[in-house]
Computed example of a mutant assay.
Amino acid sequence: MRAIILKEPGQFSFIEQEEVKAEKNKAIVKIKRIGICGTDYHAFKGDQPFFTYPRVLGHELGGEVVSISEGDIKHDLKIGDKVAVEPYLNCGKCQACESGHLNCCENIQVIGVHSDGGMAEYISIPLNKIHKSDTLSFDQLALVETLGIGLHAVNRAKLNQGEKVLIIGAGPIGLGVAQFSKLKGAQVCMADISGSRLAFIEKMGLSDSSIQVSGSLDDADLRAALGGDLPSVVIDATGNKNSMLNTFNIVAHGGRVVFVGLFQGDVTFFDPNFHKRELTLMSSRNCLPDDFREIISLIEKEVIDTNPWLSHRTSFEDMPNKFETFLEPSQEVIKAIIEL
Rank of each mutant, 00 (worst) to 15 (best):
V233W: 07
D40H: 06
G261S: 03
P320W: 02
S196P: 07
T280F: 04
G176H: 12
V251Y: 00
F200D: 11
A157E: 04
F263Y: 14
N307W: 04
E64M: 05
G239E: 09
V251L: 06
R156Q: 14
V65Q: 04
N103S: 13
L288R: 00
G185M: 15
Y53Q: 04
I235N: 10
Q48A: 10
N160K: 15
V144F: 09
C105F: 00
I123C: 06
D192G: 09
E16F: 00
I4E: 00
N107S: 13
T325E: 01
S283W: 11
G185Q: 13
R55S: 04
K132P: 11
V234F: 10
H101M: 01
R156K: 14
Q187G: 07
H75N: 13
I31T: 00
R277N: 11
C189Y: 13
G10A: 08
D291I: 00
V258S: 02
I130N: 03
S232M: 04
V267P: 03
E324S: 12
G38D: 03
I123Q: 02
P49G: 02
A153Q: 13
N25E: 01
G171P: 13
F316W: 06
D266F: 08
I123L: 11
T135W: 13
M1D: 02
K184R: 15
G174H: 12
G118R: 00
F50C: 02
G261T: 11
L288D: 00
G169R: 14
G62Q: 07
A186L: 14
N25Q: 06
F200T: 03
L298D: 10
F14L: 05
S133R: 11
F292Y: 14
I79M: 13
A120S: 04
S133A: 13
D271P: 04
N107A: 12
V66D: 02
T314F: 06
Q331K: 13
V154S: 06
A252T: 03
T146L: 14
E60N: 07
A96L: 10
K32S: 01
F269G: 04
P308N: 09
I250F: 07
G35W: 01
H101D: 00
I79Y: 08
K26L: 02
D47C: 07
D266N: 08
V258Y: 01
C91V: 09
K203N: 15
I338G: 00
L77S: 04
N155H: 14
Y41F: 12
K45Y: 04
K26A: 05
K82C: 06
S209Q: 14
L245F: 06
A225D: 08
I108W: 00
L143W: 10
S209P: 06
Y53P: 08
N246S: 11
G205F: 10
H312P: 03
Y53N: 02
H59L: 09
F12C: 01
V29E: 00
I130F: 02
